[in-house]
Write a protein that binds this DNA or RNA. Structure first.
Length: 512
RNA sequence: GGCGGGCUAGCUCAAUUGGCAGAGCAAGUGACUCUUAAUCACUAGGUUCGGGGUUCGAGUCCCCGGCCCGUCACCA
């Protein structure tokens, strides 16, 4: 504001700013001609796929080879992906949700005034086009434009039409650009939706009831993980984001909803990598009067069904450099966990039944030992580093130690083995399931054991005691088989992706 | 958190041993009424991720920081 300050010259804009201001100027020019660059609606009659279909039918029905068939006038809408000027004619590649179609605009068919709008169009703009569908001399099915309507003027340039969008960081942070530019991104997004739909259908067909349970919870129980913390102001109460849906769903089993499931987001305050995101989606299901054998049968059939519905086959194709062909056809082999660990490492977890002897056995075999870990955590390490990576075709690992399974029921006649299984495919865990512990006295002891681990081993991820849940099952929970399955990982498997970030539309990223 | 790789125009990528920061697409102007990575001519476009250092001279070498990727650790 001081007089010495130079007066701002309308500086020549450069780089990205120039690209944007050029487009703003075109929007202003449209307005000056009485054209709204953002009109409220457009009466689309055909998608691009329908337009092509319409024309092909007409062409097939045409008897005369010399005919130049053209449909009645239709209206399509979409985003301009490319344009080729040809003097007083122009070609536009128009893309919508079903595909794309070429727009053929000629000055002498549109008229000078209507054709003038071409000069104000940019790649990325969303337009509506009215005209007959024809085939050009070069054989391209095209909408011969009678009128072009700007539906949304775009202010920023799209990624390069040929090089596309390669930058992974931009692909994840601005997924909309990925969806526009990369077919694979769109394919994965649609697949994810299809997987969830097929899963719901499968569960409903088996008589399961879908419910929603609280995400903000007073106790983050039901799994071994670090929760996110938050606070409710009016209640003046600390709350957590759920780390599992398990305990609420079992309360519903107590209440008499005998088959229940929830598909929902879980939150775990842990690290990020190619198959972990702080928020992710699972299905959990609970079935009264069933045990883990019933659940195993359900899982293999559900996963095979979803693969069949989404890809047309229970056999997933080989993906070069990622995985071999994967046959999901049930039944999947059941492997006894103890036997499998023994065969692969020589470690018998029944013999090495305390943390010290297990650590010793692990060190002898060159397995990394985290000092001060509880026995269950050590064994988990053995499984994840020595067994899991070798399970490429689908397998169930069956019968886990009670020490690492505080919510699972013991096998009849066994003190230290529970009826629990996990499914593995392509070297990673797909689900975790067990016959639910419904003895309230035993359950209370297990929780107390977990609480002791929290203090003794400084294990912040030990499961927590949930008094409300104990009261619930003290009223009597029927024998129940339960399941938790990661939907993002299942989708990764079917999509053949090895990063969860290719499946989550908006993966967690650091602030820039 | 450790180690390794990466970050150059809106996008995709070059840049020799440390020696004038380039191309294609996109953009602007002009030509062109059946093109499809249209073509042709011309124009403009750069804090080389940020900061510091070495040097006559740094995209390039050194140090600090940011973000992304990979890997190990951690974790389902």
């Amino acid at each position: 504001m001081t007089p010495e300050e130079p007066i701002e010259q309308p500086e020549q804009q450069i780089g990205e700013q120039k690209l944007i201001s050029d487009r703003l100027a075109k929007a202003a020019q449209l307005r000056s001609q009485g054209i709204d660059p953002y009109p409220p609606r457009f009466d689309r009659t055909h998608t691009t796929a329908e337009a092509a279909e319409l024309f092909e039918k007409l062409e097939t029905a045409s008897t005369n080879e010399d005919d130049h068939p053209q449909t009645e006038a239709i209206r399509v809408a979409g985003r301009i992906m490319a344009r080729r000027g040809q003097g007083k004619a122009s070609f536009i590649d128009l893309k919508d949700g079903t595909g794309s179609v070429q727009i053929f605009a000629r000055q002498n068919t549109m008229g000078d005034e209507a054709y003038a709008i071409i000069d104000l169009l940019d790649i990325g703009d969303i337009i509506g086009v009215e005209g007959a569908v024809i085939r050009t001399r070069r054989g391209e099915i095209s909408v011969a434009a009678a009128e072009i309507t700007v539906l949304t003027k775009s202010m920023r340039p799209l990624p390069d039409k040929w090089g596309g969008l390669q930058d992974q960081e931009v692909r994840f942070r601005q997924r909309y650009l990925d969806l526009i530019s990369n077919e694979r991104a769109m394919k994965n997004a649609l697949l994810r939706s299809h997987v969830v739909r097929a899963m719901r259908e499968f569960m409903h067909s088996r008589g399961f009831v879908e419910v929603e349970t609280p995400i903000l919870v007073p106790v983050a129980a039901g799994a071994q993980a670090t929760p996110f913390e938050t606070h409710h102001n009016q209640l003046d109460r600390d709350l957590f984001l759920r780390i599992a849906t398990e305990l609420y769903l079992k309360k519903l089993i107590v209440g008499g909803i005998e088959r229940v499931f929830e598909i929902g987001r879980l939150f775990r305050n842990e690290g990020l990598d190619h198959d972990h995101n702080p928020e992710f989606t699972t299905i959990e299901s609970y079935q009264a009067y069933a045990d883990y054998n019933d659940v195993m049968e359900m899982v293999e059939n559900m996963v095979a069904h979803i693969a069949q519905e989404t890809t047309g086959s229970m056999v997933l194709p080989e993906i070069e450099g990622v995985r071999p062909e994967i046959d999901l056809t049930p039944p999947w082999p059941r492997l006894d966990l103890r036997t499998e660990i023994k065969e692969r490492t020589g470690i018998d977890f029944v013999e090495s039944s305390d943390a010290e002897s297990l650590s010793q056995a692990m060190r002898e075999r060159g397995i990394h030992v985290e000092e001060g870990s509880a026995w269950g955590r050590l064994l988990d390490k053995v499984i994840s580093s020595e067994v899991e990576p070798n399970l490429i075709e689908p397998h169930f690992l069956v019968d886990y130690p009670v020490a690492m399974s505080p919510l699972a029921k013991r096998k009849p006649g066994s003190d230290d083995i529970v009826e629990r299984f996990e499914a593995f495919v392509v070297g990673s865990e797909l689900c975790n399931a067990f016959t639910e512990l419904n003895d309230p006295v035993d359950q209370r002891e297990r929780f107390e054991q977990q609480e002791r681990m929290r203090s003794e081993f400084d294990d912040v991820e030990a499961d927590r005691l949930d008094e409300d849940f104990l009261v619930a099952i003290e009223h009597g929970m029927p024998p129940t088989g339960g399941l938790g399955l990661g939907i993002d990982r299942l989708t990764m498997l079917i999509a053949g992706e090895d990063s969860i970030r290719e499946i989550l539309l908006f993966p967690a990223m650091r602030n820039i």
